[in-house]
Amino acid sequence: MAGLFEQVDAAAEPERAQRVGARYQALLTGVVAQHLIDPTHAPRAEDLGDG
């Protein structure tokens, strides 16, 4: 995810890639949980993009 969203080269910066990837994984998991718990009040893609 670090390479996908922030172009972090995991081979060159493995520790940074781990930290950045973990952040995006946590965000993704949180959004999925919100949609599962209360889909009508979960943020939309536009909300997340604007944020």
Rank of each mutant, 00 (worst) to 15 (best):
R44D: 13
Q25E: 09
A26F: 05
L27M: 14
V31F: 02
V31A: 02
D38R: 05
G30I: 04
G49P: 06
V20P: 00
R16W: 05
P14C: 04
A42Q: 06
E46C: 13
Y24A: 07
V31D: 00
A33L: 01
I37F: 12
Q34R: 10
Y24T: 06
Q34G: 07
F5G: 10
P43H: 08
G3N: 07
E6V: 14
A10L: 07
D38P: 03
E46T: 12
H35I: 07
Q7L: 14
V8E: 07
A45S: 09
A12S: 08
G30Y: 05
G49E: 15
L48S: 06
D47C: 09
M1S: 12
L48K: 04
H41R: 12
G49H: 14
G51H: 12
G21D: 05
Q34S: 12
E13Q: 15
R19P: 01
A11H: 05
V20E: 01
H35D: 01
A22R: 10
Y24C: 04
G3I: 04
Q18M: 14
V8K: 00
D9N: 14
A12F: 04
Q18A: 15
T40Y: 04
P14I: 02
G3Y: 04
R23A: 03
P39M: 07
P43Y: 08
I37W: 13
Q34C: 08
E6M: 12
L27S: 08
A17H: 09
V32C: 06
G3M: 04
R16E: 13
T29V: 08
A2K: 00
H35A: 09
V20R: 01
I37C: 10
